[in-house]
Computed example of a mutant assay.
Amino acid sequence: MKKLTLLFLLLSLSMTAQTENEAVAAIKNFQKELNDEYLNPKESPLRGNNLKDFKKHPFFPVNLKYRLIADFIKTTDAKPIDFPTSSGQFQKYLEFGRATFVLDGKSYTLTIYQNVRLSGKSGYEDYLFLPFRDETNGKETYGGGKYIDLRIPQDDKITIDFNQSYQPFCAYNAYDYSCPIVPEENTLPVKIEAGVMYDDVYHH
């Protein structure tokens, strides 16, 4: 019986390590893709010398503490809402659902949205949008908050990885871009030390 118990323990530890390795690999891939996007003149929000001098984003150290499995409740009978943006314009979004998770022993809930226009494009039908603010904003990260891209979950759980959070384009170029403003209800009263950090060399 002891040998069987030890075998199960070793298998469990092996599976945990494999899952963690996959999570770290996904985060590293996210960082590479984001850097590649900002280096590409056709995709980057950077202009002029900012684009020329850009090498890579600063990131918080990868921390799987900020990769969370949240309880997900889909919003029923959701109607399109006018989402305010940084330019004073509006974009159509649906409140798609709410995610509740535990971080450092405390429970938090964030509202997740779906961009109405984007959801009609091929490849983005299951795309979800999570804007949030936290206590790093204006210090280690952009003052207007950060975003996370998600996909529609298959059940009542959704993975939120703050290590894959990024700053809106208007953090780097407020003249050419209009970015959704983070709703007040999505303000977290804690520091989320994960994802892209603020770099005042490229921000305007």
Score class of each variant (00 low, 15 high):
Asp53Arg: 07
Ser87Met: 11
Tyr124Ile: 08
Arg47Gly: 04
Ile160Ser: 05
Leu94Asn: 07
Tyr172Gln: 05
Tyr198Glu: 07
Gly97Phe: 06
Phe129Glu: 02
Ile158Pro: 02
Gly195Pro: 05
Val24Asn: 00
Asn40Gln: 06
Gly144Leu: 08
Leu46Glu: 08
Lys191Asp: 07
Met15Asn: 12
Pro61His: 12
Asn115His: 14
Phe8Leu: 12
Asn63Gly: 05
Asn35Ala: 13
Glu43Trp: 05
Asp134Trp: 08
Phe83Asn: 06
Leu103His: 01
Leu9Gln: 11
Ala171Thr: 06
Phe90Ser: 13
Lys2Met: 01
Glu43Ile: 00
Phe83Pro: 05
Ala23Asp: 06
Ile152Lys: 15
Leu4Glu: 15
Leu118Asn: 08
Gly105Trp: 11
Asp126Glu: 13
Tyr38Thr: 10
Glu185Phe: 08
Pro41Cys: 08
Val190Gln: 02
Leu94Tyr: 15
Val24Cys: 00
Ala23Asn: 10
Gly105Cys: 10
Glu135Thr: 08
Gln89Glu: 15
Ile112Arg: 00
Lys106Asp: 11
Leu150Asp: 01
Thr159Asp: 03
Phe129Val: 01
Asp155Lys: 11
Ile73Asp: 15
Leu68Arg: 10
Leu64Gly: 06
Gln154Tyr: 01
Val196Phe: 00
Leu7Cys: 02
Leu64Ser: 03
Leu128Gln: 06
Lys121Ile: 07
Phe8Pro: 00
Lys121Gln: 14
Tyr147Pro: 04
Ala99Met: 04
Leu13His: 12
Tyr177His: 01
Asn186Arg: 12
Ile158Lys: 03
Gly105Arg: 11
Phe30Met: 08
Leu110Arg: 06
Glu37Ile: 09
Asp53Gly: 00
Glu193Pro: 01
Ser119Asp: 06
Lys191Met: 14
Thr76Val: 15
Pro131Leu: 05
Asn40Ile: 03
Ile160His: 02
Lys79Cys: 00
Leu110Trp: 08
Gln164Ser: 14
Gln18Cys: 09
Ser87Ile: 07
Lys42Leu: 12
Lys121Trp: 04
Lys74Asp: 04
Ala17Lys: 13
Gly145Ile: 03
Phe8Gln: 06
Asp36Asn: 15
Val196Met: 09
Thr187Met: 09
Tyr124Asp: 14
Asn163Gly: 11
Asn163Met: 13
Pro168Lys: 09
Ile152Gly: 01
Met1Val: 02
Lys121Thr: 14
Leu94Gly: 02
His204Ser: 05
Leu10Asn: 03
Tyr38Val: 08
Tyr202Pro: 12
Thr5Ala: 12
Phe59Glu: 12
Arg151Asp: 12
Lys106Tyr: 05
Val182Arg: 06
Thr19Ala: 15
Leu7Ile: 07
Ser122Ile: 11
Leu128Lys: 03
Thr159Tyr: 00
Tyr127Lys: 09
Gly48Val: 10
Met197Pro: 06
Lys79Asn: 06
